[in-house]
Design a protein around this nucleic acid. Sequence first.
DNA 1: CGCTCTATGTTGACGCTGTTCACATAGTAG
DNA 2: CTACTATGTGAACAGCGTCAACATAGAGCG
Lengths: 232, 232
Amino acid sequence: MREDELVKERTQPQRRAYHHGDLRNALSTAGVELAREGGPEAVVLREAARRVGVSPTAAYRHFASHADLLVEVKHQAQAALADAMEAALASTAGDAAVDAGGGEQATRRLRAIGWSYVDFARDQSGLFRTAFCRPELTSQGVPAQARDRTETLDHFDAFRSFHLLRDVLDELLAAGLIAPARRPGAEAAAWAAVHGLATLMLDGPLRGLSDPARGQVVEQTLAMVADGLRAP
Amino acid sequence: MREDELVKERTQPQRRAYHHGDLRNALSTAGVELAREGGPEAVVLREAARRVGVSPTAAYRHFASHADLLVEVKHQAQAALADAMEAALASTAGDAAVDAGGGEQATRRLRAIGWSYVDFARDQSGLFRTAFCRPELTSQGVPAQARDRTETLDHFDAFRSFHLLRDVLDELLAAGLIAPARRPGAEAAAWAAVHGLATLMLDGPLRGLSDPARGQVVEQTLAMVADGLRAP
DNA sequence: CGCTCTATGTTGACGCTGTTCACATAGTAG
DNA sequence: CTACTATGTGAACAGCGTCAACATAGAGCG
C-alpha cells in the first residue's frame, strides 16, 4: 500500500492533498484555457473541474454559478486583449526618435492599436469572443446586487483597452489631427469601427478573407477612422 | 363519428391531424420567436417542438440537428434586419423632391441605413444577436458539404443588407461624396463602424447609454464614416 | 376496394450539462 | 482535545441534443 501511495505521488504530484489550496485560481485558469480553445460556449464548469482534478460541486465553493465563473474568465480575456494592445503600443515606442513632430508617432500608435485588435481577434478568437460575450448569458437569476457589481466590473475592465485608445486619441488631438469638435465620442466611434471589423471578419460576412484582402480592408477602415476624425 | 370529428376540430383546430403538414415551417417560426425573446441561446429544439405541440424527435424529420434549425432561424433573423433597413430606406424616398441635387438624398439614405441598423439591434436584440451568432456554434460535426452550403448561404443572405449599403455608397460616389480611391472596401469599413457600434451598445462597454448619449455617439460615428470616405 | 411502402410522428433511453442536498474531511480556534 | 468552519465528495434532479425502435397516416398500385 505504501508503494501504491508513492506511485500515486509521483504520477499526480498535485492531487495528494484533500484541500487544493488555490482552487479558485486553478478553476478560472482552466476556464480561460477552455475559452481560448473554444470560446465562451466551451467554458463548461464540469470540464474545468475535471481538468483541475476535482469534483464538479467543489467549484461551487468558489463560484456562485457557472455564470460567475464565466464572468471571471471574461475579465481575464478582456485583460489579455488589453495586454496585446499595450504590447503593440510599446513596440512602436522605439520609432519615437524618428518622429518628425507632425503627429506621425500618434498616427502610428493608432494604427498599432487597430491592428493589434483585429490580430488578437483572429489569433485568439476564443478569448476575443469570450471577452465580448454577453453578460446576461450567464447572469440569469443572479440577484440584482451581484449583477450590478458585474456590470461595473465589466465597464472598468473593458476600459483598460478603452483608456489606451483614449490616450492615443488625445495625442492625435494634441498633434492637430483631430478636430476638437470631433473629440467627444471619438473613442466610441473609433472603437466601434475596429471592433465591428474584428467581429465581422470573425463570424460575419467578412470571414475567410485572404490575407491581402484582409489587409486592405483593415487599412481602408483605419484610414476612414483617421480621416473621419480630422474633418471640420 | 362525423360528430366526433367536428367537435375535435373545434377544440383543437390544428392538432387534429397526426401529420402536421407544415412542421418545418412551424418549427422554424417557433425558433424565430425564441430567438426574438432570448437570442440564439434561447433557440432550443425541444422548446420549439413543445410550442408547436409535437415531440422533440419529430423535429429530426425536418432538421438534421439543432444546428440546422439554428441556421434556418439565423437566416430569418438576417432577413428581418435587411427588411428593417429596406423600410428605413423606403421612408426616405418621400423626401426626394426636396433634394437639392448635391447628394443630400444619398447622405440621408446613408444615415437612414445606419440608424435603422442600430435601432434594430436595440429593439430586436434577440434577432440581431441571432443574425450574427457564429455558425460554428451549430455546425459541429456536420459534414463538410453541408457546412459549405451553410457558409455560402450565410454569405448570400448577409449580402442582402450588404447590397443595400453598397447601393447607397454608389449613390454617394456618384454625388462626388466619396473619393474614388476610397470606394473599394468602403462597404466593409462603413458596415464595420455601424455594426461595431450596435454590438458595443448591446453587450459591450457602450451598453446602457442614455438616449441622448446614444444619439450623440451614433451621430458622431456616422459623421466619421461620411467624412472618412470623402477624404483625398 | 385492399395492400404495401414511405413519410412522418411517438416513446424511451443515453450522455452531457448546471445545480442542490447530504455527508466527509482538513485546518483552525478555543 | 474539542468544536467549528472551510472545503471537498457523492448521489441525485431536471433539461438539453440525439439516437434506435416502434407506430401511424397517407399515397400509389393491384
